[in-house]
Design a protein around this nucleic acid. Structure first.
Length: 272
DNA sequence: AATACGTGGCC
DNA sequence: TGGCCAAGTAT
């Protein structure tokens, strides 16, 4: 849930999930669509799909217990290098080289003297992080948490609080006079994109309690906003995008091929 | 390596 | 207001 998503937005959803599905086996017993539905508006709903698939894999391959080592975690759907390391370190107390966006930024400023880390995670960054990691297991866990927290709270992407930074005396970027980034990150476009349409369609499917006819997406009924099953609002939002028919079609087929939606009785619904 | 993939808060 | 950015992963 935390992948690319701020903690404060994750917390309430995470709590509801753990109340509803206290163990991997509970989640694995559900249809994948229920995971997607209760993902709510966290974004990147394929993560919900993968989390559900991970629960299934944990039941099948690990007798329902989350594995504690990096290699086995990495085999789980939706678990990459960062998540495997973070779970092994923070949930199981292992000594792992955790490298997330916060740690990358701290290292970039302290050691490289640059405002931002490189655009992609490099082998050199991993090497540096591995070298910095304390040998003691307990210390290494605290180190990972501390560096990550420093990046999240003090050494932030925008307006870093250098005046209250505990390691400002050792910062290469500060010493260099806070040079601006050497590149401008290419922003993720949103307005008018397929992603925007996909998001709007998913908002409809999450609220629908029965398959939604394709015509509902392509031709809005005049009385939108008064739909009996409550999908009028997200449906109206979708139509407000005024996207081209082929773009809408591309979004729908994309969602189906991604496993986020399925055709049933001529309509579209979350996977049952 | 580059690209696709949601959402909402902040400045 | 529009772009930036957030505990990344898969292809």
């Amino acid at each position: 849930m935390l992948q690319q998503t701020p903690v404060v937005r994750v917390l309430p959803v995470w709590e509801e999930w753990l109340r509803r599905w206290p163990s991997p086996a509970h989640l694995a017993a559900e249809a994948s669509g229920e995971a997607v539905r209760h993902w709510g508006r966290l974004g990147y709903p394929r993560r919900a799909l993968r989390l559900h698939a991970a629960a299934v894999a944990i039941v099948e391959r690990h007798d329902g217990d989350v594995p504690g080592n990096h290699a086995e975690l990495l085999e789980l759907p939706g678990v990459g290098s960062y998540t495997a390391a973070a779970v092994a370190a923070f949930a199981f107390g292992r000594r792992e080289t955790v490298v997330d966006t916060n740690i990358r930024r701290v290292h970039a400023r302290l050691f490289s003297g640059t405002a931002l880390p490189s655009q992609s995670l490099t082998a050199a960054e991993m090497r540096l992080a591995a070298e910095l990691l304390p040998a003691d297991v307990g210390l290494s866990v605290r180190w990972n948490a501390a560096v990550m927290e420093l990046g999240a709270v003090v050494c932030t992407a925008r307006a870093p609080k250098c005046a209250e930074c505990p390691v400002r005396g050792a910062c290469a970027w500060l010493a260099a006079g806070e040079p601006p980034p050497s590149y401008t990150p290419k922003g993720q476009s949103w307005h008018g994109t397929d992603r925007q349409v996909r998001g709007a369609v998913m908002a409809v499917l999450r609220l629908a309690d029965s398959p939604v006819a394709p015509e509902m997406f392509h031709q809005p009924p005049a009385d939108l906003g008064f739909e009996a099953d409550g999908i009028g609002v997200p449906l109206a939002a979708l139509h407000r995008l005024n996207s081209a028919p082929e773009q809408l079609e591309r979004a729908l087929t994309g969602l189906v091929s991604d496993g986020l939606a399925e055709l049933h009785l001529g309509g579209l619904r979350l996977p049952a």
